[in-house]
Design a binder for these strands. Structure first.
Lengths: 144, 144
DNA sequence: ATATGTGCAAATGGTTTGCAGTGAG
DNA sequence: CTCACTGCAAACCATTTGCACATAT
């Protein structure tokens, strides 16, 4: 999805609910709207500080939490490496995670809907979303 | 897998590496060897305390961490609800999680290997394991 | 006998919260 | 003007660590 378009979606969702667009918040939104690298809170913090040096970690957390609540960011919680965020594709989708360098990429994969339907039928659950992660070494780390 | 057999596997893995089998540890192992309910550390703690009231949380954590290190327990880390553990099937497999009551069940599903191969081919990653979670309401919670 | 495991208490670290001051709408 | 947001510091809480004692082997 086009970054500017995605950013506008997020802005619109915030405005609809009466939330304000501050410079710090805008900086976070921009990072999350691209977020091809699925950044951590700490990573977002470091980036935002380049433009707004007084920004606090708490502000990043508050913004990310808000976006989570209104469904504008997808949280990937890992037991060992903390959470990573995807604001570009905030809906459930597969990920491939490099266990060495921590890179997270989105493979293209379409048939999850079929699998989800099959799961629901067999289990009796009313399935609302899913999460599928593959772990391994990315091409770069395989030669390291 | 048969519970007694699974327990023996874990015991064997511990003995091989020179770890001792204490009563407290045995209690944890038994719980994890069945673990159809994918217990949390706190839940394991409460159960163990029924038989060994002086057991400390730290001991549970240490045992679970040890089992994780030797690959005898699978950790499911959730950003919002902490970690849950599966010592009965310590290898990657799908889960269905009730977002209301927190129940976690294992559906039977075989074709993950195909999907994993396909993923590896398309991404260039050397995939070592995966994780697939479906979230929704279990049959019981749908009528609640 | 020996060194691994236990249990307690303290430390840790990521995340959240309270609150006074700031600024977007 | 108002009320949501920011930034700081303190609070939180799950998990980890240090250490003296206990005990499995």
């Amino acid at each position: 999805m086009d970054l500017k378009e995605r950013l506008n979606q997020i802005l619109e969702a915030l405005r609809q609910r009466g939330h304000r667009i501050t410079p710090q918040r805008m900086a976070v939104l921009k990072i999350l709207a691209e977020s091809k690298n699925h950044p951590s809170v700490e990573s977002i913090y470091q980036q935002v500080r380049q433009d707004f040096p007084t920004t606090s970690l708490a502000t990043i957390y508050k913004t990310v939490t808000l976006l989570k609540e209104i469904g504008q960011v997808l949280e990937l919680g890992f037991a060992d490496w903390g959470s990573r965020y995807d604001g570009n594709k905030p809906f459930p989708h597969p990920h491939i995670i490099c266990t060495k360098c921590g890179a997270i990429v989105d493979p293209d994969y379409a048939s999850m809907q079929e699998i989800t339907r099959e799961m629901a039928r067999k289990s009796g659950f009313a399935i609302s979303h899913h999460r599928l992660d593959f772990f391994g070494l990315c091409p770069k780390c395989q030669s390291g």
